[in-house]
Design a protein around this nucleic acid. Structure first.
Length: 520
DNA sequence: TTACCTTTAAACATCA
DNA sequence: CTGATGTTTAAAGGTA
């Protein structure tokens, strides 16, 4: 044992370092800022056709009972009572039968020839590091703590590769638990006999890093451009931005960063943990957005061509009085990826909402509420919608071409926006583009950013690269503070009006326990 | 090329 | 004693 680490250290607060390194701690803020910087600079869109992604193997469907119950709070609040979260395999089968999409059948998990299909690459190793696997296993446990044996079991259950793999991987798991700063042994409760070994949990300080690592899994089409938002999920460095945008980022980054559908349930839980935390602090508008997010997550199981209608139905059934406009960007963006990752599909060409999604991720701040097509965008859009013959030189910078408009709050007239407006795939000629521009000019792709900073109209309309940098000194200080506060407890702590709850001291683990306690 | 990260293997200690 | 668990070191390969 090295002199700088005593046995008790495992039970104490570890020094705050970012990253998953086992040996090379670094400055939290500098590393965080490095990631932010990378994301700001890396603005080119990848060629969708040459995307590198694959599948994880799953011999157990992603829709197991256990995995489809993470939206407990929605049940308890009666918000999504009509959404069946307890599908079993039988239901999945009927589901897939009902939802065949052309010759390329949707089988309830994905498409038969989809590289993301969990049934492919049966003998391949999952595309997750051991840190991620351990993280997933712990996060998937209600109490957020597991003995090593249960971690093994989780990994084997979800990644059957390990059922037959040489036993060395268990050594790797233990090695990772011991050496990786992200994991901590939990204090044993006096008198409680757990048998051999301890429980392991995720250090809240490092939870954002694990989430980031999970999102950075290279098995999705945008891994080098849109893998995550540093502001998503548990409230990254700039989590003073609106919770709604966090929700958007959460859904998007969760979806982009984690191969579907194997970890939809996990993503739902991660999302849920944040929702639960926010419930006490958010108004009904946010709740509605959360319902949107939850319903959107459910949509990942719905074939793309049925998502809009299905989402609309769920939304209306689960949230009476819901405004339809509220979910459009979510459902559209949430529903896009399966289309985008299918180059053999004619409608895989990037859509306006694709661009909007990219812009949202790229910008990552809360000043953007509308992405509009402008004349300057036109050529880029056309090019983007026409895959290059080589399939390799197909990158564009949105920063210089997408312009934004300020638009906070809900559209005054949501009814005039058809969801299908945003699923337009291409622009055959200039008149189409003009039409689309006008349409977007009227209704746009709205990002509802409740609580966001107001954007000066002039500034908002500047080409993005000319706009001032996002990371202010204040942001940097906040980033540091939040990293110290860490974890999900740091999510969305905007400087609200007096009386609003301040930063929580509780961690997500504590939060979960509180919720469990309350539900008993 | 270098620094860093991850995996793998192995040795050893501790504990039930 | 045995097997599971936990710690540490080392090396190799990959990546940015």
């Amino acid at each position: 044992m090295p002199p700088n680490r005593k046995p008790e250290d495992t039970l104490l607060k570890k020094p705050l370092t970012l990253g998953l390194s086992q040996s090379y701690p670094s400055s939290a803020l500098s590393t965080a800022l490095k990631h932010v910087k990378i994301e700001m600079e890396d603005t080119d869109l990848p060629d969708l056709n040459s995307s590198c992604f694959g599948a994880i193997r799953m011999d157990k469907g992603p829709l197991d009972d256990d995995e489809l119950k993470p939206l407990g709070w929605l049940h308890t609040t009666n918000v999504l009572k009509d959404i069946n979260l307890d599908d079993d395999d039988e239901e999945d089968e009927s589901y897939s039968k009902e939802n065949d999409v052309g010759s390329n059948t949707y089988n309830g998990y994905g498409y038969q020839d989809d590289p993301m299909d969990p049934h492919r690459h049966i003998n391949s190793k999952p595309p997750f590091s051991f840190s991620c696997l351990i993280f997933m296993s712990i996060e998937d446990c209600p109490l957020k703590r597991l003995p090593v044996k249960e971690i093994y079991r989780y990994i084997q259950d979800h990644f059957p590769y390990f059922r037959t793999a040489p036993t060395g991987w268990k050594n790797s798991v233990r090695h990772n638990l011991s050496l990786n700063k992200c994991f901590r042994k939990v204090d044993k409760i006096k008198g409680q006999s757990l048998g051999k070994g301890s429980l392991w949990c995720v250090d809240p300080d490092y939870r954002p890093n694990l989430l980031q690592a999970l999102r950075k899994t290279p098995y999705h089409p945008y891994h080098h451009v849109l893998p995550y938002s540093p502001y998503g999920f548990s409230g990254g460095p700039l989590s003073n931005i609106s919770s709604n945008q966090n929700r958007l980022s959460t859904v998007l980054s969760a979806y982009n960063g984690v191969p579907i559908p194997a970890h939809i349930a996990l993503v739902e839980r991660l999302l849920n943990s944040q929702l639960t935390h926010n419930q006490a602090h958010q108004n009904s508008l946010d709740l509605e957005c959360e319902v949107d997010a939850a319903a959107t997550m459910m949509m990942f199981r719905t074939p793309p061509d049925r998502r809009l209608a299905e989402h609309d139905r769920l939304k209306r059934e689960s949230y009476p009085g819901a405004r339809p406009i509220a979910n459009q960007n979510l459902i559209i963006m949430g529903g896009l990826a399966p289309i985008q990752i299918r180059p053999e599909q004619p409608h895989c060409r990037p859509t306006l909402s694709d661009l909007a999604e990219t812009a949202l991720n790229e910008l990552g701040d809360n000043r953007i509420s509308r992405v509009a097509v402008t004349p300057e965008n036109r050529e880029m859009l056309k090019a983007k919608c026409t895959p290059s013959p080589s399939g390799m030189d197909h990158t564009y910078s949105l920063s210089s071409s997408i312009k934004v408009q300020a638009d906070h709050g809900y559209s005054s007239d949501p009814g005039d926006v058809e969801m299908s407006d945003f699923s337009d795939e291409s622009f055959e000629d200039e008149s189409d583009m003009d039409q689309e521009s006008r349409r977007l000019g009227d209704s746009g792709v709205h990002f509802h950013l409740e609580g966001g900073k107001r954007v000066d109209e002039k500034e908002a309309l500047l080409p993005l690269k000319k706009r001032p940098p996002r990371m202010t000194e204040e942001d940097k200080k906040l980033a540091d503070a939040l990293l110290i506060l860490s974890g999900i407890g740091a999510e969305a702590m905007p400087a609200k009006e007096a009386g609003s709850p301040g930063p929580e001291e509780s961690t997500d683990v504590m939060m979960t326990e509180e919720v469990l306690e309350a539900s008993r």
